[in-house]
């Protein structure tokens, strides 16, 4: 029986090699082993959405995967989306529309919306609300988030 497994994974364009126990959650691997604490952890049962990352381009709950399963795959976390000097248009729109209060839900919401906006460049309000229905926000009441997404859609199609 093997207790430890080697994992080689590309995160935000950088290659990482680590050795992990199979029970290590991907969310904890990103946060503790790689120090990428932008991915937040709220519930660890798939409900709050704060741990959402892109796994091979698809939005997934990183709390519902094991790190060992990421071997050979490609991940994008919020750290790879933009930099303070060069924000992603969605981040810029969230800033301008006051879509962030405490910010706990924000990374997960951004990572959910990036692929959504790629597939739906011009979403209506219902579509936006359905898209973020798997992300809980305790602060904003969602209205400013919806405004931020609309603004982002405008920016990105301009």
């Amino acid at each position: 029986m093997r207790h430890l497994f080697d994992v080689g994974v590309t995160v935000n364009g950088n290659r990482y090699e680590r050795t992990v126990e199979p029970r290590l959650l991907l969310s904890d691997f990103l946060r503790h082993d790689l120090g990428l604490t932008g991915t937040h952890v709220g519930c660890e049962h798939g409900v709050c959405g704060s741990c959402t990352i892109l796994f091979d381009g698809q939005p997934v709950r990183s709390c519902l995967m094991f790190a060992v399963q990421a071997n050979g795959h490609e991940i994008l976390t919020v750290e790879g989306l933009g930099t303070p000097e060069d924000l992603h248009p969605l981040q810029e729109a969230f800033w301008e529309a006051h879509s962030v209060q405490c910010g706990f839900c924000t990374p997960g919401i951004l990572m959910t919306l990036v692929p959504f906006l790629e597939e739906n460049p011009n979403p209506n309000e219902d579509e936006i609300r359905a898209a973020i229905s798997g992300n809980l926000c305790r602060c904003t009441g969602y209205q400013h988030i919806v405004d931020g997404v609309k603004l982002a859609a405008q920016k990105m199609s301009a």
Partner: peptide, 9 residues
């Protein structure tokens, strides 16, 4: 069935 993030997996 569940949210897009769950349908991915």
């Amino acid at each position: 069935i569940a949210t897009p993030q769950i349908r991915s997996r």
